[in-house]
Computed example of a mutant assay.
Amino acid sequence: MSRTHDHVTIHPKILYFGTPVALLSTENEDGTTNLAPMSSAWALGQAVVLGLGADGQTARNLWERPDLVINLPSADQWPAVERLAPLTGRDPVPEHKRDTHRFEPGKFAAAGLRAEPAELVRPQRVADCPLQLEARVVRMTSDSHADYVIVETEVLRVHAEPAIVVPGTQHVSPAAWRPLIYNFRHYFGLGPELGHTFRSETAAADMASV
């Protein structure tokens, strides 16, 4: 396929150019678990960095209680994620969300998801998610306009469905794991594999399982 080198200058309202969706479990003041979808995250080593709206219940909880679970849904779970999207754990609802969101304390039930206890942190895990990362905040900072917070977390424990683990290893299988991707406010799954980096430790095992 030929490509032109001509480009146009655009000014997108958002820059969600494609990141995995996560459901963040955090602890409310009364000890219950708040559950919220988010899609601005990146991982390096055992650290996961999150970008959150500054006025949401998730950010408020993490400023005061640093435990969380980063639950990663599969692509076919997008309807549950979307059921959470218009809900907020803040009461009263922040002014700029009042036309689009409603307060809902029972997020798990509203989304049709099941809760289960975590092992090392206080908030509950999402039992339905194939990958669950128990984590703790190590640093939080506000962006230059105070609209967002950047949350650096340390992952303490990883839970994975056996079906997405390469047998006999500690590796998640890229051939089996199908994350949900949020791309400019639309939900996508993964397409066919195009190849793998020379650093891959799962390529041979994944090919053997095909």
Rank of each mutant, 00 (worst) to 15 (best):
W78I: 07
W78G: 08
W78S: 14
P79D: 08
P79R: 12
A80V: 08
A80D: 14
A80I: 12
V81M: 12
V81K: 07
V81L: 11
V81F: 10
V81T: 13
E82H: 13
E82R: 14
E82V: 14
E82W: 15
R83L: 13
R83S: 12
L84V: 07
L84W: 02
L84R: 06
A85R: 15
A85P: 05
A85C: 12
A85Q: 10
P86F: 05
P86Q: 08
P86G: 11
P86T: 12
P86S: 11
L87H: 05
L87V: 10
T88N: 07
G89N: 09
G89C: 10
G89W: 04
G89K: 04
R90W: 05
R90G: 05
V93P: 10
V93K: 10
V93C: 12
V93F: 13
P94M: 10
P94N: 14
P94Y: 11
E95I: 14
E95Q: 14
H96Q: 14
H96L: 11
H96P: 06
H96E: 15
H96D: 14
K97R: 15
R98G: 09
R98C: 11
R98S: 12
D99G: 13
D99Y: 04
T100S: 15
H101F: 14
H101M: 13
H101S: 12
H101E: 10
R102N: 08
R102F: 07
R102V: 15
R102Q: 12
E104T: 08
E104V: 10
E104N: 06
E104G: 05
E104Y: 03
G106H: 12
G106Y: 04
G106V: 06
K107H: 13
F108H: 03
F108S: 07
A110D: 09
G112V: 08
G112A: 11
L113M: 11
L113P: 07
L113Y: 09
R114Y: 05
R114P: 03
A115Q: 07
A115D: 04
A115Y: 01
E116Q: 09
E116S: 06
E116D: 06
E116P: 02
E116N: 04
E116V: 10
P117E: 01
P117T: 07
E119P: 04
L120D: 09
L120H: 06
L120F: 06
L120V: 15
L120W: 06
L120T: 13
V121K: 05
V121D: 02
V121R: 02
R122G: 11
P123Q: 03
V126T: 02
V126A: 00
A127N: 01
D128H: 02
D128S: 01
D128E: 03
D128Q: 02
D128A: 03
C129H: 02
C129F: 02
C129S: 03
P130H: 02
L131M: 05
L131T: 04
Q132C: 04
Q132P: 03
Q132E: 02
L133I: 02
L133Q: 03
L133F: 09
E134V: 03
E134I: 03
E134M: 05
E134R: 01
A135L: 03
A135E: 00
R136V: 00
R136H: 01
R136F: 00
R136C: 00
R136E: 03
V137S: 00
V138C: 02
R139P: 00
R139W: 01
R139G: 00
M140Y: 01
T141W: 00
T141F: 00
S142T: 07
S142M: 09
S142G: 07
D143M: 00
D143P: 01
D143W: 00
